[in-house]
């Protein structure tokens, strides 16, 4: 077990309501730097809601989420270190792959000068740089999302079902990227049912069902 780094992300007793339906309550866990958290749970158990709360898009109806002790709502540092990838990966269908990636890089404006060509090469989509995003298969779309992870520097990755349409090579690529990310003391929270090939030392699991039951 690696030396326990200081707690980076601390989720304290949060509750999630959708309308009047309780999704989960009294959910607490903490993540130290250099960890991948695999979020398991049945459909509707709140995996996506949890990730949206961690991203700051949604606010928990109770409890708090702290980044290095500071509530994420007030922490600009947290948001500058974050990438959130929802189930719909967030690229415009009427723009080409390269235009989408250049746009994502530009609006984040995190000073990275990485080249989209190299990122596309790494995810094996070089030939598709000029293709409209709308014409890609869902597997290729998730690969473009992986290219964004390579391009936009971020210490925190929030990935919602990033593997669903990826083939075996794609899955291995993501696992390789995740390993590289946590080895440079990054944090990743990944909602997926598929087993992640991450060495146990770096892997932490959070089962949404077991938590709400107790």
């Amino acid at each position: 077990m690696h030396a326990a780094n200081p707690i980076a992300l601390d989720v304290v007793d949060i509750e999630c309501l959708r309308g009047d339906a309780l999704i989960f309550e009294h959910l607490s866990f903490s993540v130290s730097a250099g960890r991948v958290v695999q979020i398991l749970g049945a459909n509707g158990s709140g995996k996506t809601s949890l990730l949206r709360m961690l991203s700051g898009l949604a606010t928990p109806t109770a409890g708090d989420i702290l980044w290095h002790g500071e509530p994420i709502r007030e922490s600009a540092r947290f948001h500058e270190q974050l990438i959130y990838q929802g189930i719909s990966v967030g690229f415009s269908v009427s723009l080409t792959v390269r235009e989408n990636l250049e746009y994502a890089l530009a609006i984040a404006a995190r000073g990275a000068q990485a080249s989209t060509a190299r990122a596309l090469a790494r995810v094996g989509l070089t030939r598709y740089h000029g293709t409209l995003f709308g014409r890609l298969s869902s597997g290729q779309r998730q690969r473009v999302a992986l290219a964004r992870l390579l391009l936009v520097p971020a210490q925190i990755w929030l990935l919602d079902e990033p593997l669903t349409a990826l083939d075996r090579a794609g899955k291995e690529l993501l696992e390789e990227m995740l390993l590289g990310h946590v080895e440079s003391s990054g944090i990743a929270l990944v909602a997926t049912h598929q087993p992640l090939g991450i060495p146990p030392g770096y892997l932490q699991t959070l089962d949404m069902d077991r938590r709400t039951a107790c």
Binding site: S55, Y84, G86, G90, F91
Partner: peptide
């Protein structure tokens, strides 16, 4: 619909 609104708000 394509999720880029979330990216805009976050990034």
């Amino acid at each position: 619909e394509d999720g880029s609104l979330e990216q805009l708000v976050l990034m």
